[in-house]
Amino acid sequence: MSAETRWLTATEERAWRGLLRMSDLLVNRAGHSMQAGFGLSATDYTVLAELTRTPDGRLRIQELSRVLGWEKSRVSHHLARMVKRGLVAREECADDRRGAYVVVTAAGREAITAAAPRHVEDVRRFFLDHLTPGQITLLAEIADLIIERNAEDR
């Protein structure tokens, strides 16, 4: 660290705070919609979406943690709640006794299949419909860059 603090300019602070507020707002609005319509929290939906992106509907818990960018303890606690509700199941890893898989259940597949059309509608209504195609492309490029650069530090 240098001795000089590089304080944020007004525009930099506006961008940073705006990003945080926008993220919270979008997650909360979409989460309320998922909860009210399907009994799923925003984090339930996120976990189910990641699992159903894989061909066999399963991921190592460590890989799920990495993909989501969550601490292992957060993933473990959330998965425990989802297991109790029958949305996912835990399976031991045959080739690595320390590892485990999380697998989407039939109930979990039903839940995300029912919720996905509303989720897509919400993403469009709360987010995409307010942007031009060029802004969406630019935002996607910015997100990819920030994620890539910060993943290098892990």
Rank of each mutant, 00 (worst) to 15 (best):
V47Q: 01
W16V: 14
P55I: 02
W7S: 12
R124Y: 14
C93E: 08
E148W: 05
G37Y: 02
M22S: 12
D95R: 12
T132A: 09
L139M: 14
A140S: 13
R124D: 09
T132N: 02
G37T: 02
Q135M: 08
A100W: 05
R90D: 01
R74H: 10
D153L: 14
R109S: 01
A107I: 01
E141V: 05
G86A: 12
E12K: 09
G37V: 00
A151L: 12
V103M: 10
S41M: 03
R6T: 06
T137F: 06
G31N: 04
A30L: 12
A116Y: 05
G86I: 05
S23T: 10
E13M: 14
R154I: 09
D96V: 07
G69Y: 05
G134W: 11
M22T: 11
I136P: 07
Q135C: 04
D153G: 00
G31Q: 02
Y101S: 03
A80Q: 08
R154S: 06
I136F: 02
T11Q: 11
L139H: 08
R58M: 10
R60H: 07
V123L: 14
T46G: 06
F127W: 15
R149K: 15
L48W: 00
L25G: 04
E141A: 13
L8P: 00
H78W: 05
R149E: 13
M34L: 15
T137R: 15
N28H: 13
D44R: 06
T105Y: 03
Q62V: 12
N150S: 04
R154Q: 11
R90E: 11
R98P: 00
E12W: 01
R21Y: 09
G108Y: 06
E121A: 15
R58E: 03
I142L: 14
A140C: 07
L25H: 13
E152W: 04
A151P: 00
V104N: 07
E121R: 15
T54R: 10
T137I: 08
R17H: 04
H119M: 14
W70V: 00
M1I: 10
G99E: 15
E4T: 13
A116D: 05
G39Q: 07
E71F: 07
R118K: 09
A3K: 13
G57P: 08
V88W: 14
T52V: 06
R17K: 09
R118N: 05
V27R: 08
D95I: 05
G99I: 01
Q62Y: 07
D144M: 10
G39P: 03
R58L: 07
T132S: 15
D144P: 01
E152A: 13
V104D: 07
R6N: 11
G39V: 00
I142C: 08
A116N: 11
S65Y: 00
A36K: 14
R109V: 01
H32W: 12
A49P: 00
E148C: 01
A80S: 11
L138W: 06
G31A: 04
L19D: 04
R66V: 02
A100V: 03
L40Y: 02
H32R: 12
T105S: 04
I112C: 03
L87K: 06
K72I: 12
S65L: 02
W70I: 00
L25V: 00
K84D: 15
A94D: 07
S23V: 01
R66A: 04
G99R: 15
G86D: 12
R97Y: 11
V120L: 13
V104E: 03
D44V: 00
V120E: 09
E4K: 15
E121H: 14
L139G: 12
A10E: 07
C93M: 09
